[in-house]
Amino acid sequence: MAWIQLSSPHSHNRVTTDQVMRQVVIATLPGIATLTWFFGPGILVNLILTISSCLLAEALVLKLRNRPLTVLKDNSALVTGILIGCCLPASTPWWIPVLGGSFALLVGKQLFGGLGQNPFNPAMAAYAFLLISFPVQISIWPAPATPLSDTSWLNSLAGSDALTGATALDAWRNKGLLMAEEFWQADGYLSSQMVTAWASVASAWLVGGLYLIWQRIINWQLPLTFLATLFIAGSFVWGFNPSHQIPPWLHLAASSAVFAAFFILTDPVSGATSLKGKVFFAIGCGLLVISIRTWGSYPDGVAFSVLLMNFAAPALDYYTRPRVYGQKQARKGLASKEKS
């Protein structure tokens, strides 16, 4: 009689990659809902376009690489699509999300060998690509309105001008020599609705992020470190010149920070490996974001910061290895040549 021969362990906790990805998808729902609430169904259209372009692009590559299409079931392309879709303005032309989704999957992910092989966060790579290539289309958000009655998203799909409003960071960048007090009082720069809308979206992302922590999909150290770095470094910069620098609360509330903290930085593939590495990764991202927002030419800087830190992740891995059981101290760096 033939017994099945297998290597230990014979038991498995039955949590699989597609389940992990599904949890991430679930966690994005509050954010998506809030975005839709404030900025209209254009968000959903974007999402549909990014998701389908991601899936199609991945399917195409799998076909080219003679890989089974069942790989699509790991939900990773779905997550990438959602993450890109959540970054794009509701009023963006249709080809932007299609381009973004395709770029993310083709260049950001499959070009490097598919799931687990990509050195950069595909969603951020695509976003940076779009931001550099089409800065106008990427930056103009519709003014938050009573969403369901608003039909401007239809106009935007048609390419016609719609009522738009700058995001808080955009507005701040364009305030010129205005003092902070004047900026807040002046009309035409930043509507209070816009601030409310983004603060609400950030809260929604926070809810989703907490869900991920609760589900043990992500750890709490990384988002906390990132947000804390933003706050502390932002306060420091703001402390020097409160009249002209972004107040620290705005760093956190403005568009992308919370979203990035829970959904972008936590991408395990392109991040650092060890917990210590992840903390350093988050600190690096935070400092870069503040730098770009303060001295850079782009109003936000999360995508570039993440991509830059993706570059640094392998180095972080070598220098942040944990101390192994029975070792006096952690080893660092590469294996020395004479040892091998």
Partner: peptide, 11 residues
């Protein structure tokens, strides 16, 4: 499946 470096093993 491919490793997604989720870090669970490390934990």
């Amino acid at each position: 499946q491919p490793c997604i470096r989720c870090g669970r093993c490390e934990e």
